[in-house]
C-alpha cells in the first residue's frame, strides 16, 4: 500500500448544479476531496445528499459544474466525451448497485467487454478475463448468462469486470444494495481482499456496517462534506 503525498484523486471546490426549467438544484457544493493510491474510502450520507452524483463525477460519467478534478495528476473535469471514455476504460472500474451486466452477453463476454474497447488482443483479453473471473471465484460460470446466476454471483462478475482492466481505482455504488445480507457480506469480503492486495476503492454506501470496512469514511450532507473520518487500523 502506498500512502505517499500525491493523491490519486484530487477534487477542489467541486460543485454540481442541475438545471430543470427554472429550478436550480445544487447537488454538490464546494467539495474538497483527496483519495490516495491504495486507499479504501467509503462515502456515506442520507438519501439525496449527493453521494451518487459525487461518484458519477469521480467516474467521469458526469462533469462538474465548477471546481477542478485531477486524476493521477491530470485535470479531467472538462475533457471531451471520447477522452473521458478512454480514461474510464483504462483507469476506472465500476461496481454498480444493480450489477449492470449486459443480459445478452455471457459472463465471460461481460468481463471481456471493457477490454475489447481498449483494443487489447484476443489472447491478452482471454488471460485477463480468466484471471479476473478466477479471482472472484466465478471461473466455472464463464459461459453462463447473467440471468442464470444469483444476485451475489452477478455482483462477483461485475467486480471481475471492474478488475479485469487493472484500473487505478474501483468505484462501487451501493454494491450490496441489491443483495441479501449473506451475499452482501461475501461481496464486502471480496472488496476487502482486493484492497488488501493493493486496490484503491471508493464506495458509496449508507450501511454503517459496510462503511466500517473502509480506511476512511467521508460523510456528505446536502451536497457538502461534513465529516471525513480516518478509521484506525
Amino acid at each position: 500500500m502506498n500512502n505517499g503525498s500525491k493523491p490519486l484523486i484530487h477534487l477542489e471546490d467541486v460543485t454540481k448544479v442541475f438545471l430543470t426549467d427554472e429550478v436550480e438544484t445544487h447537488a454538490l457544493s464546494g467539495i474538497h476531496l483527496d483519495i490516495k493510491d491504495g486507499e479504501y474510502v467509503s462515502i456515506a450520507g442520507p438519501s439525496g445528499c449527493g453521494k451518487s452524483t459525487l461518484l458519477s463525477i469521480l467516474g467521469l460519467l458526469d462533469t462538474p459544474s465548477g471546481g477542478s478534478y485531477s486524476l493521477k495528476g491530470s485535470e479531467v473535469a472538462n475533457l471531451s466525451f471520447p477522452e473521458r471514455a478512454r480514461i474510464r476504460n483504462r483507469e476506472i472500474g465500476f461496481i454498480f448497485q444493480s450489477f449492470n451486466l449486459i443480459g445478452d452477453l455471457t459472463v465471460y463476454e461481460n468481463v471481456e467487454l471493457p477490454l475489447t474497447y481498449r483494443g487489447m488482443s484476443s489472447g491478452d483479453r482471454k488471460s485477463a478475463v480468466t484471471q479476473a473471473l478466477e479471482r472472484v471465484g466465478m471461473g466455472h460460470r464463464a459461459k453462463h448468462l447473467p440471468s442464470q446466476l444469483s444476485g451475489g454471483q452477478q455482483q462477483r462478475v461485475a467486480v471481475a469486470r471492474a478488475l479485469a482492466g487493472k484500473p487505478a481505482i474501483l468505484l462501487a455504488d451501493e454494491p450490496t444494495g441489491n443483495l441479501d445480507s449473506r451475499n452482501g457480506e461475501a461481496v464486502m469480503e471480496l472488496l476487502r481482499e482486493l484492497h488488501a492486495a493493493g486496490a484503491t476503492i471508493c464506495m458509496v454506501t449508507h450501511d454503517p456496517r459496510f462503511a466500517q470496512n473502509a480506511d476512511r469514511t467521508v460523510h456528505l450532507f446536502d451536497g457538502r462534506v461534513v465529516e471525513d473520518n480516518r478509521i484506525a487500523a
Partner: peptide, 8 residues
C-alpha cells in the same frame, strides 16, 4: 453500461 465501461 457500455459507455460507462469506456466504449467510445
Amino acid at each position: 453500461i457500455r459507455l460507462a465501461l469506456g466504449a467510445g
